[in-house]
């Protein structure tokens, strides 16, 4: 049931994903979520994901070695997804020192493997920065869990968010975001097999309810 309705391949499922900023004020913690994919528990009555032809977005991600095209051709195709985020930039948390910018994510898998999580930020389809993290499996309730907890955001991303937030109009922010993408590739560290590949694209949320998203399967038919 998960495979056609959530971000899940045959071997790995994304359970949660969030990018946030956090600060302490008057001994209280304030957390603002820029983007967030929460836990879900779909049933067979829920609709399956819509599809997008992967060729429509190849140029939005690095087309060099290790880019989306090469990865997709290697497969497996059921591991490839696109997430369109409507990011919430309406934070009233003050910027500056004492603010923590982080990314947390959680996955569950079917195998006791070590995963490598590569996050590539692309500007105009060219990679500008990459973070690679290694995670080990923890057995929990018969599943292998992988948790990246409060991974610090890089300087490039923090500066990017600062600049974006200070643009006066939302259409200007969307114009910048049109050429900003992130590719996350989770692979088996030993075999290099792709377990999950998520292409992120962005707009600014106009909702009062915070960050929103749509998930698509990437197909080639």
């Amino acid at each position: 049931v998960w495979q056609d309705r959530t971000i899940a391949s045959a071997k790995l499922r994304l359970l949660e994903y969030s990018a946030f900023m956090e600060t302490q004020r008057d001994r209280e913690t304030y957390k603002h979520l820029f983007v967030h994919i929460g836990p879900s528990n779909p049933g067979y009555s829920d609709p399956v994901l819509e599809s997008i032809d992967v060729r429509q977005i190849y140029d939005k991600f690095s087309e060099k070695k290790g880019g989306l095209k090469e990865l997709y051709e290697k497969g497996p195709h059921n591991a490839f997804f696109l997430v369109k985020f409507w990011a919430d930039l309406s934070s009233d948390v003050e910027e500056g020192s004492g603010v923590f910018y982080g990314v947390s994510s959680q996955y569950s898998g079917t195998e006791n493997v070590t995963i490598s999580v590569s996050t590539k930020v692309c500007s105009f389809g060219k990679q500008v920065v990459e973070k690679v993290e290694t995670e080990y499996a923890h057995l929990d309730g018969g599943k292998y869990m992988f948790r990246i907890h409060r991974s610090p955001m890089c300087e490039y991303m923090i500066n990017f968010i600062h600049k974006l937030k200070h643009l006066p109009e939302k259409y200007m922010m969307n114009s910048v975001l049109e050429n900003f993408t992130i590719l996350q590739v989770v692979s088996n560290r030993e075999t290099q097999e792709t377990l999950l590949c998520i292409a992120f694209v962005f707009e600014v949320s106009t909702s009062e309810h915070g960050a929103q998203y749509h998930v698509y399967r990437l197909v080639n038919d």
Binding site: D53, Q56, W86, N179, Q212, H214, Y216
Partner: peptide, 25 residues
């Protein structure tokens, strides 16, 4: 470096939902 002119996302073959921000119910 130079940047290559890309086809705007609005001109690509994408589902209608791609442009519809979900509303919380």
């Amino acid at each position: 470096g130079s940047t290559v002119e890309q086809v705007p996302m609005r001109k690509r073959q994408l589902p209608a939902s791609f442009w519809e921000e979900p509303k919380l119910t």
